[in-house]
């Protein structure tokens, strides 16, 4: 399947050329928060006022694409946590008012499918609509869903993407879980892609997507070999790796191990620029497509090797060492 258009709202200035040209923003108080667009230009004020952050991030990235593709056949999104802010807001109201009479706004906005639902509603899209909430594999699952739909309906076009928001209460839970030990920084963002089977004028081609949960090192090697051979590729056909390094962190060993599988390959990273969040691989996918299309990325992205034009990229990311995702993407 081919990427025809894409948007990205991230902690970097990814809505224009600033990021690609190397203007890098750094984390603030240990958090990477998204640089948000002026939503007023996009969303009617009455709707905007009710929307939680993840809905805004998703609409902000998705709606411009919907407007450019009015005949879109479906919307497939990944979000690990959906409207966290609204979820905790409603939870606090339940406690504060001792289950009194509450307004339903936060409850309705907190459901994970509110992003895809709002996009369908605003774009009047009555086709396929799904929301994957599979933690660190939510974006990979959305891609797999789209891949199967495009095999069944070969002429269709889909909006596929991911969104997750930063939330203080969730940050505290993740902190207690030890997710931010060793200087790992929390992030958030949304990336959206228009996908179909037409190669003409495409930005990049997503060859395949795969995943595994609770693997051993050996399982990862096996999965990698299976994915490559399924796509008739050898390791030397991969000329860039985009890996989810959160360094310095123990779980980076997974990435070091992956990098040693590809001795001649340039290695890029992205979490030093957007932080760690479950659907960060959607940013990695956007960044990889940029590299394939323009041949350039900011120097901060390069982890190992020399910057060079890439033809075929493997994105490998894991969340908490438990869920591991692979995305293969190549130049058109």
């Amino acid at each position: 399947m081919y990427i025809h258009q894409m948007t990205c709202i991230s902690p970097q200035q990814s809505q224009d050329d600033s990021f690609i040209q190397g203007k890098i923003l750094s984390a603030n108080e240990g958090k990477f928060l998204a640089v948000e667009p002026n939503y007023m230009e996009l969303i009617p004020l009455g709707l905007l006022r009710r929307m939680g952050k993840v809905v805004k991030l998703g609409i902000g990235a998705g709606l411009p694409l919907l407007k450019d593709h009015p005949n879109l056949d479906g919307i497939i999104l990944g979000t690990a946590n959906g409207g966290l802010g609204d979820c905790f807001k409603f939870l606090n109201q339940i406690i504060q008012y001792e289950e009194g009479t509450l307004t339903p706004t936060s409850f309705v906005q907190s459901t994970a499918n509110a992003v895809a639902g709002n996009l369908a509603l605003m774009g009047k899209r009555t086709g396929y609509n799904s929301t994957h909430v599979s933690g660190g594999l939510s974006f990979e699952s959305a891609l797999a869903g789209a891949q199967m739909l495009l095999e069944e309906h070969t002429d269709n076009t889909y909006l596929v993407g991911a969104a997750d928001e930063f939330d203080e209460s969730n940050f505290n839970i993740n902190r207690l879980l030890g997710l931010y030990n060793n200087g790992v920084i929390a992030g958030e963002g949304s990336a959206m892609f228009i996908l179909n089977n037409q190669s003409k004028n495409a930005i990049a081609k997503i060859l395949d997507v795969d995943q595994i949960t609770y693997p051993s090192r050996e399982d990862i090697h096996q999965k990698l070999n299976y994915l490559l051979s399924k796509n008739n590729l050898k390791k030397e056909d991969i000329d860039a790796l985009v890996l989810g390094y959160t360094s310095p962190s123990a779980s980076d060993e997974w990435y070091d191990d992956m990098a040693t599988q590809f001795s001649e390959t340039s290695v890029y990273q992205f979490k030093n620029l957007v932080g760690e969040y479950p659907t960060s691989s959607a940013f990695a996918c956007w960044m990889s497509a940029q590299l394939l299309e323009t041949g350039q990325l900011p120097a901060d992205c390069l982890k190992k090797g020399v910057p060079r034009k890439a033809n075929r990229i493997l994105i490998y990311n894991h969340y908490r060492g438990d869920q591991h995702g692979f995305i293969l993407i190549e130049r058109v």
Partner: peptide, 20 residues
């Protein structure tokens, strides 16, 4: 899903859907 996948060592495709 993660708890069940871990216990039964499920290594194929795993996913959770929330469409209400």
């Amino acid at each position: 899903l993660l708890k069940i996948a871990k216990k039964y060592q499920i290594k194929g495709y795993t996913d959770v859907i929330n469409t209400a």
